[in-house]
């Protein structure tokens, strides 16, 4: 399924997991369970040795996955096996794509049912060649915007992104935080309604997810909170969290309708 199709049924819950954590064999089943629990898109991370945009939780997951034998070949096998009827999105660092060859990487994504790519260390200025490869293979290339992205740059990123726009909720790296900042609300408000927008970085509870949807986001991305539960082997609690988050954002969407008095 293309990402644009998925965004017809807003609000969406996007769940990030690190492929290969705790083992490559466990990943396809985990993806299926997350889909059953209500995830609308799975963001499947390819672990990198130097994940500069990630906090300690996802760094540790990447190290576990690499130690368990995850590499790019295994990643695409696992992604193919994780056969679900919701879109899967690749999330990973540019050097992993560059090392495989941009065209081959995009082709492998398409072949293994991956609809889009999120590359946190690839700004649009450097993305020309990968963008062309993605176009050739019908894969979306999702760009990120941050609270400190100035207006003209935000407009450029909006034009360049495909699938959706990933809004980084706050300064810093990935990882659970306890509050939603005014920065996040402001950023959501700065993006016009026509652009599908997903908010990630620091969202770990159903309450935060609901707040982000009420602030006007179309989707919420939850990562570290899920990765943390996987690290502790608490898969049922993970499914529970996904169910609660999904319920919370649905309720938030309804309550967002303007109140006429």
């Amino acid at each position: 399924m293309r990402l644009s199709e998925a965004f017809q049924a807003k609000p969406l819950l996007i769940v990030y997991i690190c492929a290969g954590d705790p083992s490559p064999a466990a990943t396809p089943d985990l993806v299926k369970r997350l889909a059953r629990a209500g995830a609308d898109i799975i963001e499947l991370g390819l672990p990198h040795s130097d994940p500069v945009a990630d906090g300690p939780t996802i760094q540790a997951a990447a190290q576990r996955a690499i130690a368990a034998g995850m590499n790019t070949d295994v990643y695409f096998l696992v992604a193919s096996e994780a056969d679900v009827d919701i879109p899967k999105v690749f999330m990973g660092y540019y050097n992993m794509i560059f090392a495989r060859g941009l065209d081959k990487f995009a082709a492998d994504c398409a072949r293994s049912g991956i609809s889009g790519m999120i590359v946190p260390d690839l700004p649009p200025e450097e993305a020309g060649p990968l963008h062309e490869a993605c176009l050739r293979h019908g894969v979306d290339l999702v760009f990120l915007a941050a609270p400190n992205t100035p207006p003209a740059r935000l407009e450029m990123i909006q034009k360049e992104t495909s699938g959706f726009l990933y809004l980084v909720a706050r300064a810093g790296v990935t990882g659970a935080r306890s509050d939603i900042l005014q920065d996040t609300r402001d950023l959501i408000a700065r993006v016009p309604d026509g652009v599908p927008k997903a908010v990630g970085f620091g969202i770990s509870t159903p309450e935060q997810a609901a707040e982000v949807i009420r602030a006007g986001a179309d989707a919420v991305i939850v990562g570290s909170a899920c990765v943390d539960l996987i690290a502790r082997g608490e898969i049922e609690r993970l499914e529970q969290l996904v169910r609660e988050m999904k319920a919370a954002i649905k309720a938030a969407k309804k309550s967002k309708a303007p109140i006429v008095c």
């Binding site: 945009a53 946190p120 260390d121 700004p123 740059r153 980084v168």
Partner: peptide, 12 residues
């Protein structure tokens, strides 16, 4: 060369 950095670092 270039600037292969997360968006949050582009502005700084």
């Amino acid at each position: 060369g270039g600037r292969f950095v997360p968006e949050i670092l582009m502005q700084p």
